[in-house]
Amino acid sequence: MSTLASPLRRTLTRNESIALVAFCTLLGAAAQVLMKIGAERLRTVGPQAILSNPLLVLGNWGVMCGLALYGVFTLLLIFALRDGELSVLYPVIALNYVWVTLLSLLIFHETMNPFKLCGITVIVLGVVVLGRGGGR
């Protein structure tokens, strides 16, 4: 049991906590995609049916998996925050936008344009700069 808990008890280095937040944002983006898929399904059900039977939401795998992923997202984010600087890690959450844009291309066949490409590149560059900064 103690060996199981040890990676969570160990202090993470700054780059490890940044990597953990980056992974969190991927989970967050996946959660948003699942919620969108679930929400679209609920739309075909209609608001009246949902109001008369709220359990329909509980049976919607997209929404439920999305919520569960959000739970994991929050848990891992807390572990990253424990060891890292808030001023470094909080801006890294913006990587969420990057993953959402990429996943939307793949899954919802949204189009890429120069502005999006530029945005993704500059955000990633910003995260790299945060990672290179001094401190622990």
């Binding site: 001023s87 470094v88 801006p91 913006a94 936008y97 844009t101 344009n113 120069p114 502005f115 999006k116 490409l117 530029c118 945005g119 993704i120 590149t121 500059v122 955000i123 990633v124 560059l125 910003g126 995260v127 790299v128 700069v129 945060l130 290179r132 900064g133 001094g134 401190g135």
Partner: peptide, 23 residues
């Protein structure tokens, strides 16, 4: 500590998010 890296990194992220918003 507030380092130059943090300001530059945050600035780049804000610019990038603005571009995504326009896109």
């Amino acid at each position: 500590p507030l380092t130059r890296y943090k300001f530059v990194g945050l600035f780049l992220i804000l610019v990038g998010v603005s571009f995504l918003g326009i896109g």
